[in-house]
């Protein structure tokens, strides 16, 4: 059966588990807080967040850090809902 990239249970791997601790960076806290705020505003629920994450191209999903995936999903859902225009965030960054 075809496995989606996020469906990790029993995914073959011999990678050890990296147990180093890391304090969440400011942008990671910000991303988390933004998603919570969007959820309170009824603009994005947890299932949409997950679906947006799952829509990442598989190699990008595997490469991305946790909150990079959240950010990707938030942007995807917000563009879908017309809150952001496609490319609007990129334009802001240049």
């Amino acid at each position: 059966m075809e496995r989606a990239v996020h469906d990790r249970g029993v995914w073959p791997t011999d990678m050890p588990i990296d147990r180093s601790e890391h304090e969440l960076a400011d942008w990671e806290l910000l991303t988390d807080a933004l998603v919570s705020a969007l959820s309170s505003e009824g603009l994005m629920n947890v299932d949409e967040l997950r679906r947006g994450i799952e829509s990442m191209p598989p190699d990008e999903y595997e490469r991305a850090s946790y909150y990079e995936r959240w950010l990707f999903s938030a942007e995807t859902i917000l563009v879908e809902k017309g809150v952001l225009a496609p490319g609007e965030l990129d334009a802001r960054l240049t």
Partner: peptide
């Protein structure tokens, strides 16, 4: 991604989609 997250906050606050105080409170 850090700059991207900040830009997203800026845009959403400008559009009055979220309030900055709510974001701070969530943090």
């Amino acid at each position: 991604a850090a700059a991207r997250a900040r830009a997203l906050e800026e845009l959403l606050v400008e559009k009055a989609v979220v309030q900055r105080e709510d974001v701070r409170r969530n943090i």
